[in-house]
């Protein structure tokens, strides 16, 4: 199960979501795809991949790759974790 770091501060710019890690003072911008995933957290990889399939008409394989890529970027910045 993937979940957001509860300390992260979120600013919604409409088509973009800006995440700020308050302890690191680092910012990370999510595009529409990242925003879609973030707003569903906490969620499983299967659930998030399915969401990308449905929203963007991706193949299951493409959707899973994309979801994994976004989650990995977020995880390395301590914005999400997997429990």
């Amino acid at each position: 199960m993937w979940q957001a770091n509860s300390a992260v501060l979120i600013t919604d710019l409409g088509d973009e979501l800006v995440l700020m890690h308050p302890e690191r003072s680092e910012m990370f911008s999510l595009n529409a795809t990242g925003k879609l995933l973030w707003q569903q957290l906490p969620a499983t990889l299967d659930s998030l991949s399915h969401s990308l399939e449905q929203t963007y008409g991706l193949t299951p394989s493409q959707a899973r790759d994309d979801a994994e890529a976004v989650l990995e970027q977020l995880r390395t910045r301590d914005l999400v974790n997997c429990v």
Partner: peptide, 21 residues
């Protein structure tokens, strides 16, 4: 846009509790 967001957060400071956040 990212710079503007950062500036506002630095101007207002970081909240700690959930209601404030």
């Amino acid at each position: 846009s990212a710079g503007r967001v950062r500036l506002l957060w630095e101007t207002t400071g970081y909240p700690l509790t959930r209601p404030a956040r």
